[in-house]
Amino acid sequence: MTTPRISVTNTNQLTPPAGLVQRILQRIEIEKMRQAIRRSLMFWVSVTCLATAGLATAGLLFFQEAASSGFSTYVSQVWALANNNPALVFNHWQDIVTSIGEALPVVGLVGIAVAIGFTFWSFDKVIGFSRKWRAV
């Protein structure tokens, strides 16, 4: 059974409102922006997670290094000495400072400083892109 192809000329297509094509294209541009912001946000959220994990690791390494180099022991001894005989510490402060500097776990300190800086920077990016996401 076939249905005859009926030629219809009487129905008129409704005319779209003026400027609809432009509004559609603008809407698509907005969607493109949203997609780009979403990609950036996901990237920086991932970076922040990694940076936080890195910060924890750097903190752990710092304390391990401080313990192995004797830095924490030395500082606590100086502190105890300062409480018992502050004049002695005051008279030899240059030697004490030099000794503390030599025992300082520099690598761990630098690592923790970099990790803190990087974590805050990536978190700032996340905040920035979140604001852009809400604005679009």
């Binding site: 779209p16 409102p17 609809l20 509004r23 559609i24 809407r27 698509i28 969607e31």
Partner: peptide
């Protein structure tokens, strides 16, 4: 109009 915009998106 909103629906048409959603369609093309």
């Amino acid at each position: 109009e909103d629906i048409v915009q959603n369609v093309f998106v």
